[in-house]
């Protein structure tokens, strides 16, 4: 049970309700240790009251999502920024 997590692609479906792009392709910088990498590379704990995505380097929480019947709660405090690839303007 010590490593009962999935990779960040587990966030794709739940976050597609919120964002118009695929968040798993964005790069995120961990507010804890500064590690930068794709959201798809986070460790996502899904057997919980919400989704908890942790840094693969320091295990700090980078992102949380809770879906209630009427709202989605998105906590990005563990992420310094998201770099979202876009088509050239």
């Amino acid at each position: 049970m010590i490593d009962d997590y999935e990779d960040g692609n587990a966030l794709a479906g739940p976050l597609s309700e919120i964002f118009t792009f695929d968040v798993t392709t964005a790069d995120t910088r961990c507010a804890g240790c500064g590690r930068t990498g794709p959201v798809a590379g986070l460790r996502v704990y899904t057997h919980a009251p919400g989704l908890v995505a942790r840094c693969p380097g320091c295990e700090e929480v980078v992102l949380r999502v809770v879906r209630t019947p009427t709202a989605a709660w998105l906590d990005l405090r563990g992420s310094v920024a998201l770099r979202i690839p876009l088509a050239p303007a």
């Binding site: 010590i2 057997h47 919980a48 919400g50 908890v52």
Partner: peptide, 11 residues
């Protein structure tokens, strides 16, 4: 007894 956890299991 389902196991729910928001992170790695501390030992």
């Amino acid at each position: 007894f389902p196991v729910l956890s928001a992170g790695p299991t501390p030992r």
